[in-house]
């Protein structure tokens, strides 16, 4: 009776990227929100430039004629559609993919994304200022979360769902490493008095809040927790949905399901890469990772995730096409 649904390679690719772009949008809103929170008097430009740095956008930022400063960075990410890493550009790319996926995704998914895209393609400069910025970030986060909820509740669970989740998990893991990176230098700051220690923990609290992990962390943290505990939580915690380790475990499960349920044999190499990644994360104590240089470690994880994305593309997508979305 029922027919086994086929999955066009192009659709799988579109789903993977649609999920990635939307996850990127949500995380960028989180980063912008937390950056505003980190602004310290007289050093705003420096705080905001950290955002450019962790996104590896320094060159683009300069090439597009921006000078470091709060307004320039906010505009670069919130209003500059020509910047491929901006929120409008990511939403444009997500909607482009959704348009090609319209035969597959639910009407409700399409409608919400269509409206969200329209609402976000004209962010006024005054919305990026003062208290309105945080509200704007909330709206952006909620736009993606609405998408996520509609997708969870309406999207058919075949291969497409699994490729969608892979895209989301890879992007989320990557974004969590970037969120950690924004504060990594705090770890190497010389330890001062109690006052400084409290201030430092408060900043880490901000990182946790940006990742929506503050309360969960407090539930499991010892009262005398250190920044290293926060790093461990974001890197390897098994229960926190944005931890790199949980994302990697879920990637493994998704790839396993693509193999077992859908018979996709091209998963072998991707599964190997995920196992390697998991070993790197779980194989040693977080304290050792920090000792070895957290920034360098995060950089390596990002490279591994890029390699994993490329491997999935080669194995399943239309990599025969020179203009495959990337």
């Amino acid at each position: 009776m029922a027919r086994e649904p086929v999955m066009l390679a192009r659709y799988a690719e579109g789903l993977f990227w649609m999920a990635r772009y939307l996850e990127r949008v949500e995380n960028l809103a989180r980063l912008i929100d937390v950056t505003q929170g980190f602004e310290s008097p007289g050093r705003e430009a420096e705080s905001w430039h950290a955002l450019v740095r962790i996104n590896a956008d320094e060159e683009d930022f300069a090439r597009r004629g921006h000078t470091p400063g709060a307004d320039a960075v906010k505009s670069f990410y919130l209003a500059d559609a020509a910047n491929p890493t901006s929120i409008p550009a990511s939403l444009e790319a997500a909607r482009y993919n959704a348009r090609t996926l319209r035969p597959l995704i639910s009407t409700e998914m399409w409608r919400q994304l269509n409206m969200f895209h329209r609402a976000m393609s004209a962010i006024a400069p005054e919305e990026m200022q003062g208290d309105r910025l945080s509200r704007l970030c909330t709206r952006i986060k909620e736009g993606v979360q609405t998408h996520t909820g509609i997708t969870e509740g309406t999207f058919f669970r075949d291969q497409g769902w699994l490729f969608y989740r892979l895209g989301r998990l890879i992007e989320r893991a990557d974004q969590t490493t970037r969120l950690l990176d924004i504060r990594y230098h705090l770890l190497t700051a010389p330890s001062g008095g109690e006052e400084q220690r409290v201030a430092e923990l408060a900043r880490w609290g901000g990182v946790l809040r940006a990742a929506a992990g503050y309360h969960a962390f407090r539930r499991i943290a010892r009262p005398g927790f250190t920044p290293a505990d926060v790093v461990a939580f974001l890197l390897v915690d098994h229960g926190f949905p944005r931890s790199v380790g949980l994302c990697v475990s879920e990637m493994e499960a998704v790839l396993g399901e693509l193999r077992a349920r859908w018979g996709l044999r091209g998963t072998v190499r991707s599964l190997e890469l995920v196992e390697d990644l998991r070993a790197a994360l779980m194989g040693r104590a977080v304290a050792r990772i920090i000792e070895g240089g957290l920034h360098e470690f995060l950089d390596a994880v990002q490279k591994d995730l890029i390699a994993l994305g490329a491997e999935i593309g080669t194995a399943f997508f239309r990599d025969w096409r020179p203009n495959a979305a990337a």
Binding site: V6, M7, L8, R10, W262, L264, R318
Partner: peptide, 22 residues
């Protein structure tokens, strides 16, 4: 049914095929 574009299809041995994940 799938909505395909030209590049999703390929002709081999006089049959038409679509490129899927499998």
């Amino acid at each position: 049914v799938p909505l395909v574009e030209g590049a999703d299809l390929v002709v081999e041995r006089d049959h038409v095929w679509m490129r899927t994940t499998a």
